[in-house]
């Protein structure tokens, strides 16, 4: 009786198993690595209609964040400044600059400059800037060293897990209230910071909610 299956077919089940395992592991690996804001959001640095350099203004010139993002202390939203804010200085400085053409025409016409939004949470998430900056969380913790960025870059994933890291252990991230807008502040040591943090969290009654409805509604 002749053989129906050739000899090599003996190895087929094992080969299929190996191939499927390798493919499975690869797919899981790729999804873990790529399907996360650590990949999809971090590093986003769009070209803005006006090449505003935060490194120059906030870093080199030492202009406080709140000079432009004025309402961050009492609003949910950290406001993007009106063009009149730019013109407080640029009506006298670099008045002929091509880079500022759009700023001048916006100021004349009242048309908004179409800034590209970089940090954008899902719209079922309600983040409040004021409550964070008034309770020891610096701009730096979420936005990184903006004072050194020529082009602003999305620095942190801003995923739920990332938010919860701090909501679970606020003492590791809080800093003295007078240093919130100081982007160059550094704690004496990591341990000193946690000690200060524990005290701050107690004194200021920092109680970051962990319930869903704190942020989602």
């Amino acid at each position: 009786m002749s053989k129906i299956f050739p000899k090599w077919s003996n190895a087929v089940p094992l080969q299929v198993l190996i191939i499927l395992t390798v493919l499975g592991v690869t797919v899981v690996g790729l999804v873990t690595y790529y399907f996360t804001p650590k990949y999809t959001r971090v590093g986003y640095a769009p070209t803005q209609p006006v090449a505003f350099d935060h490194g120059l203004h906030a870093g080199q010139l030492g202009i406080d964040c709140r000079f432009c993002h004025t309402h961050v202390e009492h609003s949910r939203h950290s406001t993007v400044p009106p063009t009149s804010t730019c013109m407080n200085c640029h009506n006298q400085i670099k008045t002929e600059s091509d880079a500022l053409e759009l700023v001048r025409s916006s100021y004349e016409s009242g048309e908004a400059i179409p800034w590209v939004r970089i940090h954008e949470l899902p719209e079922f998430t309600y983040f409040d800037h004021s409550v964070h900056v008034n309770r020891g969380i610096s701009c730096y913790e979420c936005h990184g060293n903006v004072n050194e960025m020529e082009v602003v870059r999305h620095e942190h994933p801003m995923s739920m897990g990332w938010c919860l890291e701090c909501h679970r252990e606020p003492e590791r991230f809080v800093r003295p209230p007078e240093e919130i807008y100081n982007m160059e502040w550094e704690p004496a040591s990591e341990q000193a910071r946690v000690e200060m943090g524990v005290e701050f969290v107690h004194d200021w009654n920092v109680n970051p909610p962990l319930s869903c409805s704190a942020c989602h509604r």
Binding site: K38, V42, Y44, A45
Partner: peptide
């Protein structure tokens, strides 16, 4: 991950984002 790019963020599961 984290490479600087001007590509808008991809929303993988855009449910009610």
């Amino acid at each position: 991950r984290g490479a600087t790019s001007d590509r808008p963020p991809i929303e993988i599961f855009p449910d009610m984002v």
